[in-house]
Design a protein around this nucleic acid. Structure first.
Lengths: 131, 131
DNA sequence: ATATGTGTTATACATGTAATATAACAGATG
DNA sequence: CATCTGTTATATTACATGTATAACACATAT
């Protein structure tokens, strides 16, 4: 897998895992219906506990990004991703507001902030490594 | 004060406080040298504990946003705000990446994401209420 | 001097989250 | 039957959050 954890980070492991799986879908590295490792295998691979992986998988399942097949195990949701919900819009605005405020206070211009957002978006959907 | 806390939120109170003070500076509601309420007064005003306010003030002091005068109490730093440090750049990119990935997966276009960033930035530096 | 108001520090306590460790269960697969 | 799925339950450790109480050093005003 492409996942790299920072065990020193203040960001919880399960949250890092959620982020990187979503980023994997965004970059095209993970496509509809693609299988993910079992909770036990991924946990061992990453050197973390089964329950931590399970927590991440469950969050992603609740959000509609993943699906659990009794047969195929955990897979990327084959019927497409959920759209821009109100909950996501609210979260997006809340976090952007916090970042924009600090950026503005530190002297970052509107253009710089906007272009950084654009740049990061582009990097995100760009395929990484070899798919 | 202009501060409104959401005690039900999963965002820690001290973090909400930090955010809103930074937003107050960004919007121009708080200017260089402006005094802030004492930890005890603000705590009582908001119905929270002294130490929670103190934690927020300390974080803002360490970042260089606030200054503590033995005489004037806590004030907005009079010598200007800190610039775009490497640490802030890293934090900005890390959080933007997470948001951009989820936005992209949910079908939000680069333009939509970029314009939302620009819009939030503008709202942030726009004066609120009556300064 | 006394009282009051600063920020600061120390200690203690309660609560919730994060992460780990074992263990067991139901269903599917070989 | 053994093995591999996700899932659930329980227990434990560690840390973050928030509150509570108290005290300290310094400054101000009466």
């Amino acid at each position: 897998m492409f996942i790299e954890l920072d065990l020193q980070s203040e960001t919880p492991i399960y949250a890092q895992l959620v982020d990187q799986i979503v980023e994997g879908i965004a970059s095209g590295e993970l496509k509809r219906g693609d299988p993910l490792p079992s909770v036990r295998r991924l946990a061992e691979e990453l050197g973390i506990n089964l329950h931590t992986v399970n927590k991440s998988y469950n969050l992603l399942k609740q959000e509609g990004f993943l699906q659990v097949h009794r047969k195929q195990g955990v897979i990327v949701h084959p019927d497409g991703m959920p759209g821009v919900t109100e909950a996501f819009e609210a979260k997006l605005q809340r976090q952007l507001r916090s970042l924009a405020a600090e950026a503005a206070v530190r002297g970052m211009t509107e253009e710089a902030f906007t272009e950084e957002s654009r740049s990061v978006y582009r990097d995100t959907i760009t395929n990484r490594g070899g798919g």
